[in-house]
Amino acid sequence: MQKPQPSSLQPEIDLPGIDGGDNIMKIKEVPQDDIKTFRGYGTKTVYAVDENGQYTRVSTSGWDAEEVVLRDVVNDFEKAAQDAKVRAMKGEASPIEYFMNKYFMDVPALAAGMGLARWRVKRHLNPGVFNKLSDKLLQRYADFFQVDIHTLKKFKETI
């Protein structure tokens, strides 16, 4: 896999430091960066001190810092998924590789989630092996990825 350029991968956002000189997490210093991941899904809560020094819960629309590190991981997976999709269309990759990356998994995670040995999952990423898989096993993969079994079998036509 080619090495991605960090600058092109990251969303272009400004990263201010933590405001204020004193070392106290005040309510007004709770980041409200309206990050993309939370949009449409609500807010999260953090603990911060009010003007009397009392801790209280404060809602936040997210912190750019957490968004950057999340996107960094997500972008890599999305790129790998796209790459696997193109190759699967040409019959050079197994659709399982596409779905694995689409749902942010690596081989150990997929194997654990499916309840299979890692070496078996690794084999299933080979298109030749994938084409010979039984319907029963394909159905298990389809259930795990929450897609129809035909999406796996007729990947080229359905995706």
């Binding site: 600058s7 933590i18 106290i24």
Partner: peptide, 20 residues
């Protein structure tokens, strides 16, 4: 509280590296 803030400053430093 100050320790929590130090962790957040640390996070910012890491994020700078991730970005740049």
């Amino acid at each position: 509280t100050a320790a929590g803030d130090a962790w957040r400053m640390f996070a910012l430093e890491c994020v700078r590296v991730v970005k740049k």
